[in-house]
Amino acid sequence: MSLLGENVWLNGLVIVIGTAVLVLVGAFFGMLYRGVDRKLVARMQGRVGPPIAQPFRDVQKLLMKENIIPSGATPWLFNAAPFLALISTGSLLLFIPLFGQPALLGRYGDVILVLYLLIIPSLAFVLGGFASSSPYATVGAQREMIIMMSYEAPLAVVVLGIAWRIGHVTDAANPFLMSTIAQYPIWSLLGPVGVIGALLMLLTLVVVTVGEAAKVPFDVAEAETEIAGGLLVEYSGRNLSLFYLSDVIKAFAMVSLLVALFIPYNLSPALGITAAPAAGIVDALFFLVKVLVVMFFSISLIRAGMARFKISQATSVYLMAMTAAALVGMFLVWVDARIWV
């Protein structure tokens, strides 16, 4: 998307308004998907489950509650952390393609930037945890840091593997750009061996998504049955609702990233729809379906079927098993390149 190239002011305006709109849209769909997720998990456990609008009610209720700052906390940091978390997850949405459209600021940042931006919300959670001075929050913050360090490696290997293969086959200037990845879907570049490798990398990314979204079995940092809510133990009212929103948006962004990397297809070319509004609507709906499917397998199904890992098990899953799977996947993609190209 060429963002009005020359006029700096107009550009700035688009970025500011676009960011605000994206955060609102991301929050809306994030909460909607959280409601769907809770309903699906309840059904899988033989329960009726809360209505799909439940997360909206939760946030509305949290905004009505008192906002307590504990006496032992560092007030400015304690209050700043929720805003930092929400703003950084919002800025994540600027660089990830949503609704079948290119990312709003896709020209200015690529997947590597997204990898770095993904760290900031976790850091904000950690800061908030340490600032709240509760021993439970401190334990949660330490766990969050450890698990963050463990899923970075497999995530980076997956992104590198895809971008390397695209750069190897095509003459794209920057294979890390989201638009390049969308232009050359990874599956169309690979032979049979490479497809197995890409499937392994997809599996890795699915498991990393669970950790990024801090869901069972990787919710060790928030574990409410074990360390009483961990990082968020001292948060209430408005601050808690901001963390809730950033958590919801981050899950949506992470699933969108998986969709952008592995299923960047649009439905409108296949159906032969070319008129701009119709094609946009079809692509947006198709995107929502893709996110729903990925969310079902990566978050709901795993959440309903598993118990929580211990922190040592969670890190070894990421650092050993998932890094190994991603590396084997990358190796197979490389072997595939030797055979077929």
Partner: peptide
């Protein structure tokens, strides 16, 4: 539990009094 399932009314058990209503 699934038999009574109060989560269908939005009731949730939380781990910290700070989150509680």
């Amino acid at each position: 539990t699934p038999r009574y399932d109060v989560e269908r009314f939005g009731i949730m058990l939380v781990g910290s009094p700070r989150h509680a209503d």
